[in-house]
Design a protein around this nucleic acid. Structure first.
Length: 486
RNA sequence: CGGGGCGUGGCGCAGCCCGGUAGCGCGCCUGCUUUGGGAGCAGGAGGUCGCCGGUUCGAAUCCGGCCGCCCCGACCA
């Protein structure tokens, strides 16, 4: 039946579409463990490319990778008051090991501030040991009530950067710098342009002095917190005795930051670029940027076509393009076209007997070049010479499309609560209003609209005229962006 | 945790109301023919009907309990 092959259209149910497409694109599957997912090879390869891109940026900004234990003594988590309050409900605890009950239970890390800063305390003596700039790639566990593949699972993969600095200014700068790295990465690799800014008090990380985030607007106009960066002040260094001797010989507490992005970005990619035919993987994170589909009738043609496909692949690989040949014999070409569209490969190159004869390839882009140009016929030399540029151009088109969608769904200068609610109920995305900074107002608006303050936007995203009225009445002290969020 | 829905070959479903020992599509296997947008024909494999108990000569179907999953709301990267 045709219906077996179709995905639930986005217009029918965006969340059903998401669940469908994540599984049918073979990104991930549900696991026997409640709330946990299995990331399948295609999805994992995308994550690996994200990791590579980010890891490069971390290294460029002076960070090194390390690894800390999965299990954290319960007493560590409990040391920072705000921190434990924030995480208590979602901790998974190991109480038994080696066949007996442990004297002190361990928690499966929900995040690693405590164990990492306890080690930093051991390693840092002098201002000369600072800054200490480490990152770790790992899994974490937060017991979630309601889970969704990639967007919220009990176990997820992420990176967490943890830094220690001699001065407050330097740590604050680091937190801002890494927020910028996330933004840059999401634009340059995922073609997902977020809005960056400061979190409100109620939305900040448990244990932080200040939290920043990048918020991306999905196709259903809900916001996705796609990365966070925290200025931790001296909260953890005080609890873990992370001190150093300053140049002047005084003992001082170090200043910390932490920052992380997770496999949630894969979900963000899906909901930013996907369409009713499947996901769209932006070129720089596509495990196969070009999929060659060979076409043949006879055995002789098969040999000839596959030979040409191999040669073309080798040439593309030499040009730095990630290529895959789909030589499966039990599927006809049409079936392969649909499959790779579902899985979001940026380009498909068809090579059949006619193309071999003419020395050409037929190139199709996952999102067509234009409505009138669904396929491009290129000589092999041309294809080879232009593909790297075509990949870049596709990235730019995706980024521009996503940015245009974000802007089209951003509503500025809203000062009336009724209007805010109206916009949100009509499916509006990011709504910019004034705010006094009063948490009671924030809570009241949240109750009334089911939206939250996503960020106090950075200057670049702020409205050209600063709002004077607070959404809850009275004078505004700042501008905030509201949205319903994942 | 509240509301809704669903558990039947790998996937999607029908059968349940009205009990009689399981069927359809897709997928899978074998063979032949095919292959430029989801191939055709022929043959074949595959199911303790979520679990436990009850009613009955007999339960996928009726009754009770339990478990699990999905969706919508309260908390969260």
């Amino acid at each position: 039946m045709a219906d077996d092959k179709r995905l639930t259209p986005r217009s029918e149910s965006f969340s059903a579409w998401y669940n469908d497409v994540v599984q049918r694109a073979e990104l991930a599957d549900y696991s026997p463990v409640r709330g946990c997912m299995v990331i399948r090879p295609w999805g994992y390869a995308i994550w690996e490319l994200m990791q590579q891109g980010l890891d490069g940026l971390f290294k460029e900004t002076g960070h090194e990778n390390a690894y800390f234990p999965l299990l954290i003594p319960m007493s560590f988590i409990e040391r920072e008051k705000e921190h434990v309050e924030g995480f208590k409900p979602e901790l998974a605890v190991v109480s038994h090991a080696g066949g007996r009950e442990l004297d002190e239970p361990y928690v499966v890390r929900p995040t690693s501030e405590t164990i990492i800063y306890s080690m930093y305390a051991k390693w840092v003596q002098s201002y000369r040991d600072l800054p200490l700039l480490l990152n770790q790639w790992c899994n974490v566990m937060r017991w979630e009530l309601r889970t969704r593949l990639f967007l919220r699972t009990s176990e997820f993969l992420w990176q967490e950067g943890h830094t220690a600095h001699a001065t407050r200014e330097e740590a604050e700068e680091e937190a801002r710098r890494m927020l910028g790295v996330y933004r840059q990465f999401q634009e340059d690799w995922i073609a997902m342009p977020p809005v960056s800014g400061l979190k409100s008090e109620s939305e900040k990380f448990a244990g932080a002095v200040r939290s920043y985030s990048v918020e991306a607007l999905m196709q259903d106009n809900r916001a996705l917190q796609a990365g966070t960066s925290h200025f931790l002040g001296q909260n953890f260094s005080r609890q873990f005795g992370l001190t150093f001797q300053s140049e002047e010989g005084r003992e001082e507490h170090a200043w910390n930051t932490s920052w992380g992005v997770s496999t949630r970005m894969v979900g963000g990619m899906v909901m930013t670029h996907g369409d009713d035919n499947g996901i769209v993987v932006p070129p720089r994170i596509a495990p196969a940027q070009v999929v060659i589909v060979p076409i043949w009738r006879t055995d002789a043609q098969r040999v000839l076509v596959l030979e040409e496909a191999d040669r073309f692949r080798d040439q593309l690989v030499a040009a730095g393009v990630r290529v895959r040949i789909d030589a499966r014999d039990h599927l006809n070409p049409g079936a392969k076209f649909y499959e790779w569209e579902r899985k979001g490969a940026p380009f498909r190159a068809e090579i059949g007997p006619r193309d071999v004869a003419k020395g050409q390839v037929v190139l199709a882009r996952r999102v067509p070049f234009s409505s009138s140009e669904r396929k491009r016929f290129l000589s092999r030399e041309e294809a080879l010479a232009t593909l790297p540029a075509l990949l870049d151009a596709f990235h730019e088109d995706l980024l521009e499309g996503a940015r245009a969608r974000r802007e089209a769904n951003s509503h500025r200068g809203i000062s009336d609560l009724g209007e805010l609610k109206e916009i949100l109920d009509a499916g509006g995305g990011l709504v910019y209003t004034g705010w006094s900074g009063d948490p009671d107002v924030e809570e009241r608006v949240k109750q009334a609209t089911r939206a939250t303050i996503r960020v106090i936007p950075d200057d670049e995203f702020a409205s050209s005229s600063r709002p004077s009225r607070c959404i809850g009445g009275g004078a505004a002290k700042m501008e905030v962006a509201w949205a319903r969020a994942y």
